[in-house]
């Protein structure tokens, strides 16, 4: 079989999307029963669950900082997830790179100085992989941290962007990720800053700006969906508190948003 065409002459991608169309996105909060905060983020067939514990006392006294909280990130990639390369140990180089990327992305955003001498554990669990793993992990980590109530200065919204000839493509699946020069960008949408840009392949400099702009724009779209997910979650909590606080006056006005979990799709063209 020939290599699949990544962008057809009719401007459709291998999975039928338009160049700037993102895959279906679902954001679920507080799925994990024990964690302080957790989130499951799905971009198409890529699914990542992140749990957050802390800020809490550190197990490892050596790595402690006396003036701020430290982040400890672990990554687990099961064999069935579809990541090539077989079983990975904890000290695998690819894992280390991934976790240090996450750590460096979130360290400037989390208000670590508010929790001196403590540790925040971020556990990333890949459930399925079909490209754009870092993007999914960053988005899930943001939501899990918010769910845990860890103070942050802004949301961190990540997107991937690749270049096919001269057309930028958003939100890559594994086919596109393997064949095209691509970058992952993590945006702080409110303060209009960027905390992470990774690019591992070569790229014409003139194209870089366009791609970055596109990725930042897409990050803002992800931010809107995240806001909605967090808002739904908070409303659900509010309703739960009200219902415990005694049935005075009832709560008839909150009926509309009563669906159980937050799930939404952002498939529209930008």
């Amino acid at each position: 079989m020939n290599r699949p065409e990544l962008l057809s002459s009719y401007n459709y991608r291998s999975d039928g999307r338009r160049p700037t169309e993102m895959r279906s996105l679902s954001l679920l909060l507080s799925q994990h029963p024990q964690a302080d905060g957790s989130a499951t983020v799905t971009h198409g067939l890529t699914e990542v669950m992140v749990t957050v514990f802390g800020p809490r006392e550190s197990k490892n006294k050596a790595g402690l900082a006396h003036d701020r909280a430290v982040l400890s990130v672990t990554l687990d990639v099961p064999v069935f997830s579809g990541v090539p390369g077989g079983r990975r140990g904890r000290s695998d180089k690819r894992n280390m790179e991934f976790t240090s990327n996450i750590k460096n992305t979130f360290e400037p955003v989390i208000q670590t100085h508010l929790h001196p001498r403590s540790q925040i554990d971020i556990n990333i669990q890949i459930l399925q992989a079909d490209g754009s793993l870092l993007q999914a992990a960053v988005n899930a980590t943001t939501l899990a941290l918010i769910d845990a109530g860890v103070p942050m200065s802004d949301y961190v919204c990540a997107t991937t962007c690749a270049l096919h000839d001269s057309t930028p493509l958003l939100d890559l699946n594994s086919l596109e990720e393997n064949d095209l020069p691509n970058l992952t960008v993590a945006v702080l949408p409110r303060s209009n800053k960027v905390t992470l840009v990774t690019l591992e392949t070569q790229l014409a400099v003139e194209r870089f700006e366009e791609m970055l702009k596109m990725a930042v724009e897409a990050g803002k779209l992800v931010h809107r969906e995240m806001l909605r997910a967090v808002q739904n979650r908070s409303e659900k909590l509010m309703r739960a508190i009200e219902s415990v606080g005694g049935g005075v006056g009832g709560r008839p006005d909150h009926r509309q948003g009563e669906e159980r979990d937050v799930e939404m799709y952002a498939g529209n063209d930008l």
Binding site: H32, Q34, A35, T51, F53, K59, D76, P78, D121, N123
Partner: peptide, 9 residues
């Protein structure tokens, strides 16, 4: 594999 999320301590 026992994940760190299941056994946080």
């Amino acid at each position: 594999s026992c994940t760190p999320s299941a056994y946080p301590h």
